[in-house]
Design a protein around this nucleic acid. Structure first.
Length: 424
RNA sequence: GGAGAGAUGGCGGAGUGGCCGAACGCGCCGGUCUUGAAAACCGGAUCCCGCGCAAGCGGGACGGGGGUUCGAAUCCCUCUCUCUCCGCCA
């Protein structure tokens, strides 16, 4: 949520920056509404001040045993006027609040202006995309011969897009989770948390999924709850409505399933594990002092990259253009893995600085150096998402004989196994 | 799911209709004393919003929301959460 004061102080600047993400807001109308809101508040407070005086007088007169019928009548009338003013204020505030909730974050000045993903900027590339002496297979074919996933039978359980890992595939998934959590907690300074996978509407509003993304999420209407689309939601909301007293930054890592309806996304290019309704993801979340949030973002991207480097997988880092960023982000880097069988890059991580956008929605503050309450900056990034990571491991590690050589760093988590071999 | 108890400032804990934003204790900040520290003593400190260049003025907040009343931390309703007991249960 943007600060209405910022909009008031620099309406043209806000409008222009929103325009770079193809969002146009009627700033003038919003400010006019704000004008009305403040006028109603001022008038209501003037009346309340009057009533307070009159009430005080009633107390004094009663104590003196005097008649207060007339003055009580006066106070009651004031009360009625106040109630009317308060109703105005509430209704205007509600309108304004809904309006502000629907406005995306302002892009940071370092974000390249662009219409969409085609204007994203490749910041760096790491690792070698090696040539195969044979035609590389895609992960669906590989996992079939290796017996890692059963896509056919999985459809019986919840339909397409809900993968069923089997045997070494299930173990690989577990090993990767363990491997990544260990790395972030022991090398990057994160504290592991294990949050609920279901959250309230308030939590979804706090991180910005609602009201905009309702159609993309699984809802439990009987309970007013939602399945999380990412651990970002429960983990960021841990500190909702709180003034954080402990020293910042707070760095948390969580591994959870993520549920996404991906409505309308089925079809080509979504085979196997590429785009699924349920997947696991290791998520990094930080609460930092505003002054350090951009340095923290760079470091956060590095934390995710370290996972891929340790696994020896070729990747590239993109700086997203203003038009391609998600609703709440001020700046965002994507990390994409090279998938030779798929023949393209696969996004496995998205690392964003939300500045105070989420903190303002979720009301997360801290005591800054001057002892003043201030909204924190929140960041998060995948570290990393599992299905596409598995795709890359399989497709990059495949051999001519159909086996897959596992990254060395992963072997201790696979009971020393060096390679996945076809089932007899 | 049923019955009961409770929710007050950073923490503990008073306060049951009218200068209560809230006694008191702890903790915190500043000062005096001290070579330094502790102790003791003195002083200070909540947050949100509106108006104002500012000094400041005003409004609101005692878990959330609503109500009664001229006036609510205090009375009523409701929701949430915590605790105790019973039931159910992986």
């Amino acid at each position: 949520m943007l600060d209405i004061k910022l909009i008031r102080e620099n309406p043209a600047g806000v409008r222009d920056r929103l325009k770079t993400r193809r969002c146009s807001v009627d700033i003038a109308a919003l400010l006019e509404l704000d004008e009305r809101r403040r006028a109603a508040i001022t008038e209501g407070e003037r009346l309340k001040s009057q009533r307070n005086e009159v009430s005080k007088k009633i107390g004094v007169l009663k104590k003196a045993g005097e008649d207060t019928t007339e003055i009580q009548h006066q106070s009651r009338e004031l009360g009625e006027q106040i109630a009317a003013r308060d109703a105005d204020v509430r209704s205007i505030e509600e309108t304004q609040h809904q309006w502000l909730l629907a406005i995306p974050n302002l892009p940071h000045e370092s974000v390249p202006e662009g219409e969409d993903a085609t204007q994203n900027v490749v910041v760096r590339e790491w690792g070698l995309r090696h040539d195969f002496s044979f035609t590389p297979q895609d992960h669906v074919a590989l996992s079939e011969t290796l017996g890692l996933f059963d896509f056919e039978r999985a459809a019986r359980l919840a339909g397409a897009g809900f993968p069923l890992a089997t045997g070494a595939g299930a173990r690989l998934k577990r090993a990767l989770i363990q491997f990544m959590l260990d790395m972030h907690t022991t090398q990057h300074g994160y504290t592991e948390v294990a949050p609920p996978h279901i959250v309230s509407t308030a939590a979804m509003i706090g991180t910005g999924q609602l009201p905009k993304m309702a159609a993309d999420m699984y809802e439990l209407p009987a309970d007013g709850l939602w399945l999380i689309p990412t651990a970002e939601v429960p983990v960021t909301n841990i500190y909702r409505d709180e003034i954080i007293r402990q020293p910042l930054p707070i760095k948390l890592v969580a591994q959870t399933p993520c549920f996404r309806r991906e409505a309308g996304a089925a079809g080509k290019g979504t085979r196997g594990l590429i785009r699924v309704h349920q997947f696991n993801k290791v998520e990094l979340v930080q609460f930092v002092p505003p002054a350090t949030s951009y340095a923290a973002l760079d470091k956060l991207v590095g934390d995710a990259e370290n996972v891929l480097q340790a696994l020896g997988l070729p990747y590239r880092v993109l700086l997203l253009s203003s038009g391609d960023m998600s609703f709440a982000a001020a700046k965002c880097y994507d990390i994409e893995l090279w998938a030779p069988g798929h023949g393209g890059w696969l996004e496995v991580s998205s690392c964003s600085n939300f500045e105070s956008f989420q903190a303002r929605r979720a009301n997360i503050r801290w005591k800054n150096a001057e002892g003043k309450n201030e909204f924190v900056h929140t960041l998060n990034g995948s570290g990393v998402a599992l299905p596409r990571l598995m795709v890359a491991i399989l497709e990059n590690g495949q051999q001519a004989d159909g086996s897959v050589v596992l990254p060395e760093a992963l072997r201790p988590y696979m009971g020393g196994l060096e390679r996945l071999t076809p089932q007899a």
